[in-house]
Simulated scan of single mutants.
Amino acid sequence: MVLSHSKTNKNRVKINLMGRVKNLHRVFESFKIIPLSLIQNAVKYRKCNDIEIVFDERDTKLDFSVVSYGDFISEEEIKSLFKRGYRTKKAESMNVEGSGLGLYALKVVAEAHEFQVTVRSEVLDT
Rank of each mutant, 00 (worst) to 15 (best):
V2S: 02
L3M: 07
S6Q: 09
S6I: 05
K7A: 10
T8I: 10
K10W: 06
N11K: 07
V13D: 05
I15V: 12
L17V: 03
H25T: 02
H25Y: 04
V27M: 08
S30N: 10
I34C: 03
P35K: 03
L36W: 05
S37W: 04
L38V: 04
L38S: 08
I39W: 03
Q40V: 03
Q40I: 07
N41K: 15
A42Y: 00
V43T: 00
Y45K: 05
R46W: 09
C48V: 05
N49K: 03
E52H: 13
I53S: 04
V54G: 00
F55A: 09
F55L: 13
F55K: 03
E57I: 09
E57G: 09
E57L: 10
R58E: 06
K61L: 08
L62Y: 07
F64M: 00
S65Q: 05
D71Q: 03
F72L: 13
F72R: 09
S74N: 05
E75C: 09
E77P: 06
I78Q: 05
I78V: 10
L81M: 14
L81C: 12
F82W: 10
K83V: 08
R87F: 03
T88K: 02
K90D: 13
S93D: 14
S93Q: 15
N95I: 01
S99V: 02
G100A: 00
G100N: 01
L106Y: 02
L106S: 02
K107H: 00
V108W: 00
V109C: 01
A110L: 06
A110W: 01
E111A: 14
A112S: 15
F115M: 12
Q116P: 02
V117I: 13
V117N: 03
V117E: 01
V117M: 05
V123W: 06
L124P: 08
D125G: 11
T126F: 12
T126Y: 11
